[in-house]
């Protein structure tokens, strides 16, 4: 029955126009980049910032809008003999799943067309999709958790916006300021640990190490390389990113199971 429920949710999600527009955006962007810069490595670097900035904010707001728009429907579904946990996971699965699907299709089709047989370039595309998908799960989970905890949608959108801005822009700036102020002290290891607290930083570090885009690596990325070396650094970044994916979803589930609808 869970699969049936998920099937109906996915079908309903696929009927929306925005998810198609989202897929078309990535398809046109990636295709355009391939046409302007024929080198797949440059395309991947070009896509990096789009993935880091656009994907999280869309996932966050997608979750918030999806929850509040179907708030009344949720009440009706919860009155059916369906376990609450199923309702939650079909909502999250269909919402985040369709975003991942269209994001992946939008990125991978141009890679398959233009980088056929070039394994290194294809793997870069796959890393972009994989890391972007993790960001979708993380930010969708945060958005869903926020929506579940906040009756007031304006406040939920406000908090979501502040969280995204903090992780996308402010966190790095504050970190740099801190490092500058404490430049006479040994701050490498604390700075390394501080990157764990920002999923976007982790995603950026992971991708820049994979794409070998030294110029975009920044201070924290260079730290990973120097302290841990390439592979171990990537594994740690990926591991903490996976924890980030599990954390907000667990929080969303905990709140959803206890929420009074």
């Amino acid at each position: 029955m869970w699969i049936g429920l998920l099937g109906y949710e996915v079908r309903e999600a696929l009927r929306g126009r925005w998810v198609w527009a989202y897929g078309a955006f990535f398809l046109l962007l990636t295709e355009g980049l391939f046409r302007f810069a024929s080198d797949p490595a440059r395309v991947s670097v070009g896509l990096l910032n789009v993935v880091l900035f656009i994907v999280p904010v869309v996932a966050l707001f997608w979750a918030l809008v999806g929850f509040y728009q179907t708030r009344d429907f949720l009440e009706l579904i919860l009155s059916q003999p369906v376990p609450r946990r199923w309702v939650l996971w079909t909502k999250i699965g269909s919402g985040a799943g369709t975003l991942i699907l269209f994001f992946a299709i939008g990125i991978l089709i141009p890679y398959l067309l233009h980088a056929r047989g070039q394994w290194a370039a294809l793997s870069e595309g796959l890393w972009l999709v994989g890391t972007g998908s993790l960001l979708i799960v993380i930010y969708y989970g945060i958005g869903f958790g926020l929506a579940v905890t906040r009756e007031d949608r304006t406040r939920a959108f406000g908090i979501g916006m502040v969280f995204w801005f903090f992780t996308a822009v402010l966190y790095d700036a504050l970190l740099l300021l801190l490092l500058l102020l404490l430049r006479d002290y040994p701050v490498e290891r604390p700075a390394f640990v501080l990157t764990f607290f920002n999923p976007l930083d982790l995603a950026r570090i992971l991708l820049t190490m994979r794409l070998e885009a030294a110029l975009l690596m920044g201070y924290t990325g260079a730290l990973y390389e120097r302290l841990l070396g390439g592979v171990l650094g990537q594994l740690i970044a990926l591991g903490v990113l996976l924890l980030w994916a599990v954390g907000p979803l667990g929080w969303a589930q905990w709140r959803f199971m206890r929420r009074d609808f």
Partner: peptide
């Protein structure tokens, strides 16, 4: 039948 309507809009 709840007071607030809840149907899939596009279904």
């Amino acid at each position: 039948l709840p007071e607030e309507r809840g149907l899939y809009r596009r279904m």
